[in-house]
């Protein structure tokens, strides 16, 4: 069978048994409806910390909906109903006592289209600190620099940190948005097709960044680009029509999928 090229990471086998990773997100029988449309059907997934989990699947398969459920961003859509449980570090995110503000502080999100605020580069990063009541100028300055360094964009913007963020290129804007999340030192980064609006060079930079960030953060990334999933992720979940068809090590998904539909999708027979 002709599967997409997949570079096996050299440290892959040696890494696997060494550490017992805890779960960040455990999804149990999760369903979601937009009005009458059943968008997520009985999702069961267990995502580990400090791994990159990729979610792939054709348009309309529910992958974006699912990642937006993980930080309850779907709440913004009118007429959304959910059932089942999604546990973040053992706490049900649908529980009323778990405020969405806390969840979204611990879980950062990077969106499909770079969405910096119409403010300066500095204020974009400081925004998260300010809304959480941090006023100390020294802390804010240090955090802004640290976050921009972590997002590998510091050298490009350090001389124009007080200029409007809209002056940056698309790829720089997206890394700025990643830095904006990092400023709050989150536990998890959710990325909803973060490179779909970027050119190939910017895409590569963001992918390199994701590989670096994996050391400290758990990353869940939705992508329509299968090569990207195979390049950067440890685990891959394949969504189709609102269901999880297969969830396994990325290597297995791309080289020895258990389900025919997964194989058809990754070999480009549909989607």
């Amino acid at each position: 069978m002709a599967l997409v090229a997949f570079k096996k990471q050299p440290d892959k086998t040696s890494k696997q048994p060494s550490v017992e990773r805890r779960s960040v997100y455990t999804t149990k029988d999760c369903n979601l409806w937009y009005g009458n449309h059943h968008a997520l059907k009985n999702i069961n997934l267990d995502m580990k910390e400090r791994e990159v989990t990729a979610i792939i699947g054709p348009s309309g398969c529910g992958k974006s909906t699912y990642i937006k459920t993980l930080n309850r961003m779907v709440d913004l859509v009118p007429n959304v109903k959910t059932s089942g449980v999604i546990e973040y570090r053992g706490r049900n995110i649908f529980n009323k006592e778990f405020h969405v503000e806390e969840l979204r502080t611990r879980v950062g999100m990077v969106f499909q289209k770079p969405n910096p605020f119409p403010k300066s580069i500095f204020e974009n990063i400081a925004f998260g600190l300010r809304i959480h009541g941090i006023k100390n100028k020294k802390i804010i300055h240090e955090t802004v620099e640290k976050s921009l360094r972590q997002a590998a964009i510091w050298d490009e913007v350090k001389d124009r940190i007080h200029e409007p963020a809209y002056g940056l290129s698309g790829g720089q804007q997206q890394r700025l948005c990643i830095a904006r999340c990092l400023a709050l030192e989150p536990d998890v980064l959710l990325m909803d097709e973060p490179t779909s609006a970027l050119d190939p060079v910017s895409t590569l930079k963001v992918e390199e960044l994701i590989r670096d960030l994996k050391e400290k953060y758990s990353i869940i990334i939705v992508t329509h680009n299968m090569q990207q999933a195979s390049r950067i992720s440890d685990k891959t979940a394949f969504f189709l029509n609102g269901e999880v068809v297969e969830y396994d090590d990325t290597y297995t998904i791309f080289n020895n999928p258990a389900d025919n539909r997964t194989e058809d999708y990754i070999t480009g027979r549909f989607g």
Binding site: L76, E101, N115, F117, C177, L184
Partner: peptide, 13 residues
């Protein structure tokens, strides 16, 4: 709406 999402996504009320 992207700007609102960015703000909510950072935990803003």
């Amino acid at each position: 709406k992207e700007l609102r999402e960015a703000s909510y996504g950072l935990g803003a009320t």
